[in-house]
């Protein structure tokens, strides 16, 4: 059984008398502990799809199944992280990371106790009591991701988490993310419009079409793990990149 399944999910709304398809009927089956990316032109409905899976948006049709249970319209079942780090500026890094635990009813003290070793292990040692505005973009994204991880859900949605970072930091963060994924054994669903990033990280890549968005292709990435900088110059990496570029080129507005 698939870990996460989107069955005939779609979103349609009306504005000024016009019917707008934000997402056409979409089917996805994500297996447990896989790293799956979704790429597509901007405005193709990637974020709509994520909001539906996260239960923040009700789809017009269809269902979202987590371990076979319908979670349509119910939030709190999957971890979710956006491009903006959304750290609360008035809380220290440590207190930001325990936000999900606090909402669950864990006391601040217990939450801190649980979060501290994780923070120190994953590159934020010494920054526990700093405020977000004292950290670099990469560090802030680390904190945001640790917050999502500490919330401890099997499935994590990442919506262009590294989109605002510079190229070098981004590569560091990707390697960091792969390490975390291997350590925590989560199922990750990752939205990006960076083809390199998608190939480098994923087991599978879904390609979406231009608006109205629908799934156009599913690509299986057959690159050995663990991956590192050398993967980026692998022959099959380059081949796959060319194929995906060609596919996305078709989707450009004509």
């Amino acid at each position: 059984m698939a870990k996460l399944e989107v069955r005939k999910g779609s979103k349609v709304f009306k504005k000024d008398g016009q019917t707008i398809y934000a997402l056409q009927e979409t089917n996805m089956q994500i297996e447990d502990k896989k790293f799956v990316s979704i790429i597509g032109p901007s405005g193709c409905g990637k974020s709509t799809l994520f909001n539906i899976i996260a239960g923040l948006l009700k789809p017009s049709t269809g269902h979202v199944l987590l371990d076979g249970h319908d979670i349509v319209g119910k939030s709190g079942y999957v971890g979710y992280m956006l491009q903006k780090d959304l750290l609360l500026p008035w809380r220290t890094i440590l207190d930001n990371i325990i936000l999900g635990l606090e909402v669950k009813g864990v006391s601040k003290k217990d939450g801190r106790k649980r979060a501290l070793p994780m923070l120190q292990k994953y590159g934020l040692k010494g920054f526990e009591s700093h405020y977000p505005n004292e950290l670099s973009g990469g560090m802030r994204q680390r904190a945001a991701l640790l917050r999502t991880l500490l919330y401890d859900k099997d499935v994590i949605l990442l919506d262009e988490p590294f989109g605002a970072l510079d190229a070098q930091t981004r590569l560091l963060m990707q390697t960091w993310l792969l390490k975390i994924w291997e350590d925590f054994k989560k199922t990750i669903l990752f939205v990006t419009h960076d083809i390199d990033e998608a190939i480098y990280l994923s087991d599978e890549i879904y390609v979406m079409s231009h608006r109205p968005g629908r799934m156009k292709a599913k690509v299986t990435v057959n690159l050995p793990r663990p991956r590192n900088e050398l993967t980026l110059s692998h022959d099959s990496f380059i081949q796959l990149k060319q194929d995906l570029l060609a596919m996305l080129k078709e989707e450009q507005v004509t």
């Binding site: 909001n51 996260a54 239960g55 923040l56 939030s75 709190g76 079942y77 999957v78 971890g79 979710y80 956006l82 959304l86 936000l99 999900g100 909402v103 669950k104 919330y151």
Partner: peptide, 8 residues
């Protein structure tokens, strides 16, 4: 949205 996604 973030807080709701955390089940708030």
């Amino acid at each position: 949205r973030l807080l709701y996604s955390l089940g708030a």
